[in-house]
């Protein structure tokens, strides 16, 4: 199976680069988490991968539309249709029917905990249930490339666990998964992480590589340092320095530390 992704992708919006020269590769069975703050370019990257927007330059390597599963930010379910009707519509669009459809429908509904809500209108579902339905719709045809735009935003912790279980299962079945998320703890569960900032790649690699590739030095301290280079974690502080390590214990505990340190380093 080939790897999917994008090479040298640039998307300009209103004279500003929403994405600048971004390259991303995702192998079958792999989960790549795209993280970054608001306006970092996560959605633009995912929409370009899905073919929903046209890049200004660069190439996208994606399977044919019928082999892509896409879950947009706004959930992408038909709110005035019931759970069953949503599934029936997407199944018909993908030409799924008979035993295959029955099996997949049952497995996805069970995984999403929606088997008792099949006749409920999507607009009456809770936020978490709606996100899980949207995921089920994106997964119904077992796509080669699964693109999820912030699937867990606004979802309760229990539903987030369910969603992650479904995402992991999709990857284990061979789908290449690219998901945008604002939850940095989630990103650590992915095989690889791409940190975007203002349309550019800040850090990229396996979570351990990302932690190791933070430029400069990060230490944990009981006292705050330079306000522009200090951030709080619980009752302690982290201080970043470009050259000489400041006083304290060297520590990049997680992706959150790595993202903040890389953002400070970029602005320094």
């Amino acid at each position: 199976m080939p790897a999917w992704g994008a090479h040298g992708l640039t998307v300009e919006r209103g004279g500003r680069a929403a994405l600048a020269d971004v390259t991303l590769t995702v192998e079958p069975g792999e989960i790549v988490a795209v993280v970054g703050g608001d306006g970092a370019g996560k959605t633009t990257l995912l929409r370009a991968l899905a073919g929903a927007i046209a890049p200004t330059s660069g190439d996208v390597a994606a399977p044919a539309l019928e082999r892509i599963g896409f879950m947009p930010t706004a959930a992408g379910v038909w709110r005035d249709l019931s759970v069953d009707e949503n599934i029936a519509f997407v199944a018909a669009a993908h030409g799924l029917s008979g035993e295959t459809l029955r099996e997949r429908r049952a497995a996805l509904l069970a995984g999403a905990g929606l088997e008792h809500a099949t006749s409920r209108l999507a607009r009456n579902l809770s936020g978490g249930m709606r996100q899980k339905l949207a995921f089920s719709l994106a997964m119904l045809h077992r796509p080669d490339l699964l693109i999820l735009d912030e699937p867990s935003t606004g979802v309760d912790p229990v539903s987030r666990v369910d969603l992650w279980r479904m995402v992991s299962l999709a990857a284990s079945q061979g789908a290449a998964v690219v998901m945008a998320t604002t939850y940095l703890d989630e990103a650590e569960r992915a095989h690889r992480v791409m940190v975007l900032d203002a349309g550019e790649i800040l850090l990229e690699g396996a979570p351990a590589q990302v932690l190791a590739s933070v430029p400069g030095h990060v230490v944990e301290s009981a006292e705050p340092g330079d306000p522009g280079r200090t951030w709080r974690r619980g009752r302690r502080y982290r201080v970043w320095s470009p050259d000489e390590p400041p006083h304290g214990t060297a520590r990049v505990a997680d992706i959150e530390d790595a993202v903040v340190a890389a953002a400070i380093a970029k602005g320094a």
Partner: peptide, 9 residues
């Protein structure tokens, strides 16, 4: 509701 984007892909 974001479903036009869904239809597009």
């Amino acid at each position: 509701s974001g479903t036009l984007e869904q239809l597009a892909v």
